[in-house]
């Protein structure tokens, strides 16, 4: 059976069916991310300044990841344009670079996540709060786990500044002297890594960036398929493969555009 309008435009819409499909899908994605962006903004403007961490995310790393995604959007268009110009080998090259960019983005993002999972905040019983690292840099440690391990104190290397002191103060921390201090468990009210359960900020941060990363992963899988097994279609139905690459490129541009909005609100504001 021949599926109609996979290559040629449908007379009533003027475009082939897959393009209609991807735009309907992207419309639903706009609603999903739009709701989350709105949630973030309402939480942000409603939060007390001392409770909303600023300066905790690494701007140079975030900037590099932004550059990687912008570069990948250029290469995905180049891959599509190469097929339009009947240059299959050039398509393979640009498609491979695009997939590599996607994997680079995910690798850097996982590095950032790991950094957060080993960074802690301690709420002390006297009302003070300090951020820093536990000895051995364990992930996902909590006060309950420390108590279950039978420890009476923790060795904690505090940051020079707490995030409530503002972004500029946070940026000075790396130039300071880091000395570990011993904190008795009896003086700790709460201990949490920078995980979603830590605060509203990290809950929405991980929701937004985690959902975005899942989209990057999905896009990378599809583009890797079109680079590998899916590329065989070039020898049987080249127009259809070109359309498939265009549709995957539209999705990829949407994912990149989401990051263009995510980067400033999460890393700068």
């Amino acid at each position: 059976m021949d599926i109609p309008y996979t290559s040629q435009p449908r007379p009533d819409t003027g475009i082939y069916n897959a393009k209609v499909g991807i735009w309907l899908f992207l419309a639903s994605e706009v609603m999903l991310f739009g709701a989350l962006f709105s949630t973030y903004i309402l939480l942000r403007v409603g939060a007390r300044p001392e409770d909303w961490p600023t300066g905790l995310l690494n701007v140079p790393i975030g900037t590099f990841n932004t550059a990687v995604l912008i570069a990948s959007s250029v290469t995905v268009v180049m891959a599509w344009a190469s097929l339009k110009m009947k240059q299959f080998n050039r398509f393979k090259l640009f498609q491979a670079i695009t997939v590599l960019c996607a994997l680079t983005f995910l690798g850097i993002k996982s590095f950032e996540y790991r950094d957060k999972f080993t960074h802690y905040e301690v709420w002390k019983t006297d009302g003070t709060r300090i951020t820093g690292h536990l000895e051995g840099k364990p992930m996902f440690m909590t006060l309950e786990k420390v108590k279950a391990a039978g420890k009476e104190s923790i060795l904690f290397t505090p940051d020079l500044h707490h995030y409530s002191e503002g972004k500029k103060a946070m940026h000075e921390r790396d130039h300071g002297d880091h000395k570990a201090v011993e904190i008795p468990v009896a003086q700790i009210k709460r201990l949490s890594a920078f995980v979603p359960a830590h605060s509203t900020y990290f809950a929405i941060y991980f929701t937004l960036t985690g959902l975005h990363a899942l989209h990057v992963l999905g896009g990378a899988v599809v583009m890797a398929y079109l680079f590998g097994p899916g590329a065989k279609m070039w020898f049987t139905d080249p127009d259809r493969l070109t359309n498939r690459v265009e549709v995957s490129g539209l999705f990829w541009h949407f994912v990149d555009l989401v990051w263009i909005f995510l980067f400033p609100i999460l890393y700068l504001l």
Binding site: S73, V77, W80, E246, G249, L250, H253, D256, L257
Partner: peptide, 12 residues
């Protein structure tokens, strides 16, 4: 994709 790319590059 051409149109979306132009919009994306403008946003970037």
């Amino acid at each position: 994709l051409k149109a979306f790319h132009v919009i994306f590059i403008t946003a970037a």
